[in-house]
């Protein structure tokens, strides 16, 4: 029975992936671009949820690693690099290294302290990006003057074509999400949930809780960096505001909207987030205030997020059904 359920899940995921694949062929360009952004931010939110939903650590500085990744890509491409692959590896690596250094300090505390400390160091990265003019261009950011073309089977595809960009982002995020999927289902993934459930018990059966936390922090930072690299290619620039804590709150909100207890919850939350943004910004400029107003009841009444509550509801219904 467990196997059929597993088959169903896999089939469902493949179906959704195919739906995503057909996106650019049926949607107008504007919506393809929104979908691209949903994928990038969804990846960021999923990297955040490895810490939050799985390990029980609320990181409020995830945008810092996202930004570090974006600047790594921008710097590599503006200093004469012209390999798409290397530019993303640079984003991944920069995110991982930054997360290793900062995480070394952050994992010493947890709960609210972890939230405060990650927020602090995230803002430190923001301050660097904002003020180190010679390296980062300050508040103007670093524009990408050339985005290398995607070389596939001897043909070149320009990433300035929104459809090409979308399919490229879809491929990279799908690979990263697959990697995350493996991580949460590995023995290491079990250790992370054990930290969330009872870190003291885990330490008393012989685990180095801080080392495990640090490993999770580095993986999350690397994937956030990767998402940042994609975001930089997508926008053709890196700006300091993507390191700001206001930006860090986005993956948090997406995860809460979608549900932290579900693997794909944050991605779903990203879709809700952008949907709401489209809806609200078409009516008013002050979208953050509405976001706050929407968030209050979600936090109070939907503790498992919207997708999570929906799934709970379906589960109880199927249980009640004869």
């Amino acid at each position: 029975m467990a196997d059929t359920k597993r088959m169903q899940t896999v089939a469902g995921i493949i179906l959704v992936f195919i739906l995503f694949l057909t996106g650019p062929f049926i949607l107008p360009v504007y919506w393809t671009m929104i979908l691209t952004e949903i994928l990038i931010m969804g990846l960021l939110a999923m990297s955040f949820n490895l810490l939050f939903g799985y390990t029980g650590l609320l990181s409020f500085g995830q945008a810092g690693f996202f930004g570090v990744g974006a600047y790594a890509t921008a710097l590599f491409l503006s200093k004469g690099g012209n390999s798409l692959f290397v530019s993303l590896v640079a984003a991944l690596g920069a995110g991982a290294v930054a997360a290793l250094v900062i995480g070394f300090l952050c994992v010493r505390r947890d709960e609210i302290y972890f939230a405060m400390i990650t927020l602090g160091f995230g803002m430190m990265l923001y301050t660097v990006a904002h003020n180190w003019l010679s390296l980062t261009g300050g508040s103007d950011g670093l524009p990408l003057l050339n985005v290398p073309a995607l070389n596939l089977l001897g043909r070149e595809f320009s990433l300035f074509d929104p459809n090409v960009m979308y399919l490229f982002v879809l491929t990279v995020t799908a690979l990263c999400i697959f990697f995350l999927w493996r991580v949460v289902r590995s023995p290491f993934g079990l250790m992370l949930t054990a930290i969330r459930e009872n870190k003291q018990r885990l330490a008393f059966v012989g685990a180095g809780v801080q080392h495990l936390r640090l490993a999770a922090f580095v993986i999350a930072g690397a994937l956030a960096g990767m998402a940042g690299g994609l975001f930089c290619l997508f926008n053709a620039m890196a700006t300091p505001d993507i390191l700001h804590w206001g930006f860090s709150s986005r993956p948090v909100l997406m995860t809460v909207l979608g549900g932290s207890g579900i693997f794909f919850g944050p991605l779903f939350g990203a879709a809700i987030f952008f949907g709401l943004e489209q809806l609200i910004t078409s009516m008013t400029e002050n979208w953050m205030i509405f976001l706050g107003i929407i968030l209050v009841p979600v936090v109070i009444f939907f503790p498992h997020g919207i997708l999570g509550t929906l799934m709970d509801w379906m589960r109880t219904r199927t249980k009640r059904a004869p």
């Binding site: 023995p187 290491f188 079990l190 250790m191 018990r201």
Partner: peptide, 29 residues
């Protein structure tokens, strides 16, 4: 104990540690 894990997972946690697989992040459990 680990309250929101299954009983089986509760026991797998120390076993994973016993076999020094705590940092194995790619193989499937």
């Amino acid at each position: 104990i680990f309250p929101n894990l299954t009983v089986m997972e509760n026991i797998l946690v120390p076993l994973v540690l016993h076999h020094r697989k705590g940092f194995a992040f790619l193989p499937s459990l």
